[in-house]
């Protein structure tokens, strides 16, 4: 990557926000999740078309692309949430920690305990804030100090200060942005290795969204974060690597984020990023 944002002139710059990518300067990372020749079908319709990708450990990887191009489907392949959809059929390998998660001897429930997931719409359980965060610990039979873990997770999700006096009140009483951070706290409480996020800020206002963006930055110190977003600026701001999917479920380009946003190889990607199509 030769360009930095200060080098680009107004004409060449594809997006108008500053691109801040200090975190890419870290040591090269090992692969956390990899897909090889992945094809996914819903009935006869193909949603993922021959995708091969290696996602680095402890980095933020953004998945972008037009609606219906299979980003969510790809995300759900990683923790096998696609198993819940009866018409869905997966071919090819998805490796997590060097093991194909679609092997017969992999228990999807055990797999999901290592992979946290945050959904587009905040979906806290109708339980107290404490019970929401402790949920994963409870179902996994955690025998350490639950309260301590709850506090740590809430702090990591930048929510603790706002709710520390009302841990016993319902998670549904929080604002949308707080609920989403609660869901993030819930996802990271059992200390997963990967956190999947499917458009986590699309239902939130800019202030709440920026809080979550800051949070994602911090999370990458400990976790591998894979995030789907429709917001180009967001992808540019927070991610280290960006994968661009285009219609038909094809992975068109996958590179370091600044490269994708400043100098993509493919004309189609440039068109998509600048809003000429999609």
């Amino acid at each position: 990557m030769s360009n930095t944002s200060s080098d680009t002139t107004g004409d060449e710059s594809l997006i108008t926000t500053e691109v801040e990518t200090g975190s890419t300067q870290r040591t090269p990372a090992r692969t956390a999740v990899a897909a090889r020749d992945l094809n996914v079908y819903y009935g006869d319709e193909q949603a993922i078309d021959d995708v091969t990708i290696e996602i680095p450990e402890k980095r933020v990887t953004a998945l972008i692309g037009p609606s219906g191009c299979g980003k969510s489907t790809f995300l759900r392949c990683i923790n096998r949430m696609n198993d819940m959809i009866e018409v869905c059929r997966v071919e090819g390998d998805v490796e997590f920690g060097g093991k194909n998660v679609y092997d017969d001897d992999v228990d999807p429930v055990a797999l999901r305990r290592k992979i946290g997931m945050v959904f587009q719409k905040p979906n806290p359980f109708p339980k107290s804030i404490r019970d929401n965060v402790a949920y994963g610990l409870k179902i996994q039979g955690y025998d350490g100090d639950v309260d301590e873990r709850v506090e740590e997770s809430l702090k990591a999700a930048a929510l603790y200060e706002e709710v520390k006096d009302q841990l016993d009140s319902s998670g549904l009483d929080l604002s949308g942005g707080q609920q989403q951070r609660l869901c993030i706290a819930r996802a990271i409480a059992p200390d997963p290795e990967v956190v999947l996020m499917d458009e986590p800020t699309s239902a939130l206002d800019p202030v709440a969204a920026s809080k979550i963006e800051d949070l994602i930055d911090d999370l990458a110190e400990q976790y591998t974060v894979i995030i789907v977003t429709h917001n180009m600026q967001q992808a540019a701001r927070i991610s280290d690597r960006t994968a661009v999917f285009l219609t038909g479920g094809r992975l068109v380009e996958y590179d370091d984020t600044p490269k994708i946003f400043e100098d993509p190889e493919e004309q189609r990607v440039e068109d998509y990023i600048t809003g000429k199509f999609g």
Binding site: N79, M81, M84, V109, A110, L111, R112, R113, K114, G116, M117, F119, K121, N123, P124, F125, P126, K127, Y135, G136, K138, I139, Q140, C183, R186, A187, P190
Partner: peptide
């Protein structure tokens, strides 16, 4: 009971029974 809640619980690595007992039935 909204499916969101079930998916949320499943994604945490809950078994079917745990999801039913902890999320679906109370609701």
């Amino acid at each position: 009971v909204p499916d969101d809640l079930r998916r949320g619980s499943d994604a945490m690595g809950a078994t079917r029974w745990q999801t039913t007992k902890n999320v679906v039935l109370p609701e």
